[in-house]
Amino acid sequence: MPTTVTAPAVPIADGIELSAIGYGAMSLAGVYGAIEEADAQRLLDGLLERGVTHLDTANVYGQGASEQVLGRFLARTGQRDRFAIASKVGIVQGGGIGKRGVRGDREHIREQIDGSLSRLGVDALDLYYLHRPDPSVPVEESVAALAELVEEGKVRSIGLSEVTGEELRRAHAVHPIAAVQSEWSLVSRDVERYVIPAAIELGVAFVAYSPVSRGLLTDRFDAEISALGGSRRNFPRFDASNLPGNLAVAERLRAVAGRIGAPLATVAVAWLEHRAAEAGLRLVAIPGTRSLAHLDESIAAASLRLDAEQLAELEAVAAEISGPRTFDPLWVSGGREGLIG
């Protein structure tokens, strides 16, 4: 029997709930290695079987490939109503990760929504994110354009990805923001300074991507997997200067997890869930994987309780991670808040 999601669903807006563990569908676009269509469809069937009903994708994942795979799944199963589907707009194709641009203008937003709806084969998205704020367009203007899509019935709620605490407050004053999405994990904690307090203050749900740090916080990650990891090579933590030390940190975290009696991925997600509950934050974690067995480890976190000593030990080891979480500090909230150099 597969591990099933037992944590309560997270409400983000009227009539919209996200399963506490969602699925980050960037992996369906081959970002961390190729995946055959049949394997992708079996994976998505497994999500449904496990009660994972939140699917998170974006127009730029594989230049629309991720949305297309999800669209074929929804058409094949006829289960659209079982899922809360999120996509994103704002990042524009360039020369690959680290070389992309950003557009948050009304024209671009209105142009891109129809492409996402068509690829997914749906009439409306449950959640539509501004993927990154555009430095040349006030966030208020981008949110006003997204609000038009809500009024037209193409979008049911609005989200923001990698915004600062201040940007979140400014956006929320224009239209209610249902969710803010950023990287958050044992080794990526900059959002705790400004973004998470703003989300709590405004009643905005937090969607954590890379909760196991692109596979680093698992029992199977090593230098060979990193070399095969596609886009990982664009992130400083996986480059030649930082990876050896970070692999050692991960090995020490595995030892802590072993004493706890659970896989490191389970422990890492349980740590997130504990910190969110402690802060009064509504949390959804969206691990991205091509393996149902790996997903099961994240789902199992709901039944794991960590005590104060275990939390302190995990955090002390994780604090020794080397390298920023991003290739460009301005690309993420913490960089623009002066927390990532």
Rank of each mutant, 00 (worst) to 15 (best):
I225F: 04
P197S: 11
A13M: 07
Q68H: 10
A265L: 01
G121S: 10
V5T: 00
A265S: 04
S161N: 12
F73D: 01
N246S: 11
L330C: 00
G62I: 07
Q63I: 12
A147I: 02
L217Y: 04
Y129H: 15
L43V: 10
D190K: 08
H175L: 06
A205E: 04
R336Y: 08
I340L: 04
S241W: 02
G62F: 04
D14Y: 01
H274D: 14
V195N: 09
R103M: 01
E107M: 11
G15V: 07
V92G: 10
R290E: 10
E224K: 13
E111Y: 13
L295Q: 10
H175Y: 06
R103N: 02
E67M: 05
N246D: 05
G203H: 08
A9N: 13
A257M: 02
I340T: 13
R252V: 02
D45P: 00
R220Q: 11
A7P: 06
A173L: 06
R72N: 12
E162K: 11
P11T: 14
Y194C: 03
L28V: 03
A38H: 08
V267T: 15
D123Y: 10
Q41G: 00
N59V: 09
E201L: 06
D219S: 08
V195S: 06
G229T: 01
G288N: 15
A262C: 11
A318V: 11
S210P: 03
E273L: 09
Y194D: 15
Y129C: 07
G215M: 02
G121D: 13
L55K: 01
D114S: 11
A199I: 14
I286A: 09
A25P: 01
D39R: 13
S185R: 05
G94N: 08
L18Q: 06
A312R: 13
L44G: 00
L283I: 09
A29L: 10
A250L: 12
E148S: 10
E67P: 08
R106D: 15
V249S: 03
A277P: 01
A268F: 06
L243A: 10
Y209G: 03
A255H: 14
A40D: 06
V89R: 10
L48P: 02
A227C: 03
D105M: 06
V139R: 07
A265Y: 03
L264W: 02
R193E: 15
I225S: 12
I16H: 09
N59Q: 14
L304S: 11
E192P: 05
G338K: 12
E49V: 06
R156D: 10
E67S: 07
V191M: 04
A276H: 02
E140G: 02
V317A: 12
S333G: 07
A20V: 04
S161L: 08
V332Q: 07
G280F: 05
V332W: 13
T4C: 01
E17I: 00
P244S: 09
E36N: 07
S303R: 10
L70K: 01
V332P: 04
A75P: 05
R290W: 00
E273M: 08
W184D: 14
K154H: 04
A144P: 01
A268Y: 03
E224H: 11
